[in-house]
Design a protein around this nucleic acid. Structure first.
Length: 324
DNA sequence: TGGCCTCCTACCCT
DNA sequence: AAGGGTAGGAGGC
């Protein structure tokens, strides 16, 4: 049965779906161009959501919500506001960040309305374990496999069945590592199975709840006890699931940006050691303040190849890539 | 010695 | 063919 259409009043300048949903934060959103309007189809909070961007609003449908057959628009809009962190007055921050950094100012022209999502912690831990040495399309297909193998069915729509992300318990069943290995997860198969078991043995949901209460650095340290979670993945989880908006995930892109624009002295190290990593994070926090991780995400988007094709002629990329 | 830092390599796949 | 990182281990101080 088709869902009703709802309306969430938010300007495109305050929430741009393209950069927010397709910028490497979440791997569960697909852009569907087949109809007469662009639609984003994705899953969070055990529901299937269909979103359409308009200039002054997001139009949306919700599927697979059995608990809430009464079509509670208030509840849905609360969920969306939370998911997109809409309490944060982004335009204010964009101003501050633009004043602090001319490179940000330049990037913000195209990359307006980029929001940090507040994502489910379990989904995020395993998604970013999958992200190492990997690209967005392959990560996306891995997450899809995890959901179809071990998640619960949400609904079927237009002949596609959608599944929720598996629980920790579901990832602790027999032969997870073997099955994932056979399905192209590579060395991450072992990380996933080990991490699920570790969390389970250390309290399961309770371990996660404790994590949510910790300060940034404590949460980061605890996350790094998980197999397959180093500094960068831990920071992704802190930033996108735990609300630690000061966390700055430093991957090779960010390392390149930082050494090119802000910290030339760090030069070309062969490996980013924890100390160098911290120094880059501090540099961003000094420049942008307590939401540095959010600001850094805009620079990160601007550096993504997939978005650089969208640049208009007059605006140069904020950072020049090395010639190939 | 321990502790801390740095560097190296393997790892799956497309 | 090199990449949106981590683990594990070696070597230096």
């Amino acid at each position: 049965m088709a869902s009703k259409w709802y309306n969430l009043a938010v300007k495109k300048t305050d929430l741009q779906l393209l950069g927010t949903l397709n910028g490497g934060q979440s791997f569960r959103w697909k852009l569907d161009n087949s109809g007469n309007k662009e639609q984003w189809i994705g899953i969070f909070d055990h529901k299937l959501w269909i979103l359409e961007q308009e200039n002054d609003a997001i139009k949306y449908q919700v599927y697979g919500d059995e608990e809430n057959v009464n079509e509670n628009e208030k509840e849905y809009s609360k969920l969306l506001k939370n998911y997109f962190n809409l309490d944060i007055n982004l335009q204010e921050y964009y101003k501050q960040w633009s004043d602090a950094d001319p490179y940000f100012k330049k990037a913000s022209k195209q990359f307006y309305g980029i929001r940090i999502l507040k994502q489910d912690i379990t989904e995020n831990i395993f998604s970013f374990i999958c992200s190492s040495n990997n690209n967005i399309s392959r990560i996306t297909s891995m997450i899809e496999k995890l959901a179809t193998f071990y998640g619960n069915k949400i609904c079927t729509l237009n002949d596609t069945t959608y599944y929720s992300f598996p629980t920790i318990n579901n990832l602790c069943v027999e032969n997870v590592e073997k099955k994932l290995s056979e399905n192209g997860f590579g060395y991450r198969a072992k990380y996933i199975s080990k991490t699920a078991k570790f969390i389970n043995e250390n309290g399961g949901d309770l371990w996660l709840e404790k994590l949510k209460e910790m300060k940034y650095m404590d949460a980061r340290k605890n996350l790094m006890n998980l197999s397959g979670v180093g500094p960068k993945v831990a920071d992704c989880i802190c930033l996108m699931s735990l609300g630690h908006l000061e966390a700055v995930p430093v991957d090779t892109h960010v390392y390149q940006i930082a050494t090119r624009l802000y910290l030339p002295k760090l030069g070309n190290k062969k490996t980013v050691t924890e100390k160098v990593y911290q120094e880059i994070g501090e540099c961003f926090r000094n420049m942008y303040g307590p939401l540095a991780g959010w600001a850094h995400t805009i620079l990160f988007c601007a550096d993504l190849k997939k978005f650089q094709q969208n640049q208009d002629e007059n605006s140069e990329p904020i950072t020049k890539r090395k010639k190939k």
